[in-house]
Design a protein around this nucleic acid. Sequence first.
DNA 1: TCAATAATGATAAATCATTATCATTTTGTC
DNA 2: GACAAAATGATAATGATTTATCATTATTGA
Lengths: 123, 123
Amino acid sequence: MERSTRQRQAIREVLLELDRPLSPQEVLDAAQSKVPGLGIATVYRTLKGLVEEGAAVAVELPGNPPRYEPSGKTHHHHFHCTACGKVFELEGGCTSDFSAMAPPGFQTQGHEIVLYGRCADCR
Amino acid sequence: MERSTRQRQAIREVLLELDRPLSPQEVLDAAQSKVPGLGIATVYRTLKGLVEEGAAVAVELPGNPPRYEPSGKTHHHHFHCTACGKVFELEGGCTSDFSAMAPPGFQTQGHEIVLYGRCADCR
DNA sequence: TCAATAATGATAAATCATTATCATTTTGTC
DNA sequence: GACAAAATGATAATGATTTATCATTATTGA
């Protein structure tokens, strides 16, 4: 049986409210303002559960442990701030035909684009 | 003093010959056919040295430890085979203006593109 | 309200990649 | 060839993230 707890609610809310891919630690920091005393273990457990039930997806970026965002978003890419380390979601789809970039005989199934730079707050 | 050893030669050769970003383990596997008994520690040490002297660069891909390729290549991107796990270099530069994808106020400094799919051998 | 039990939080343990240690081997110089 | 020192290889140690454990707490259905 799955129970509704303040901790899980807070973690779900944080993912929706901050609206960018969050590391487990970022989730903890944000959710602790809603639920003081929240532990990191609960964050990991809950994120894992959310992914399993399809409510969240893991976002893998180069050189970093996975971050998490709500599922159901349209195809999009990410901006990784080299100063504060935050990852932001990019609006707008991709128009380029990336399949053409693959060598002959290769079958392209998907792609990932990451922009690096400074976010508005860090400039 | 820096000495020329069979191990370092083999590792350098492997990076040049295979011509794709290699994980330390891939380097070990390939170089052991040239130098039986080669140890993983030497691979890590040598790769680190090659990066420090500018002869190789680390390639970071989502969800994977860094891979290594010779430095000096022109700007390029990578193809990650979802079947065998090998990473390949893509020919051809990128024409799109990725800076335009960033939100207002963001400063884009660079980008990374990774295609996912099946390589010619795995289809 | 109560009992059953799922969930939590603190922390120990597990993982995995990478680095440090050190006795031994190999390289470069005289 | 001999010597000094760098390099190697085996493996222990490290660091960082994630998971397991377990006593305690909180939720849910009766």
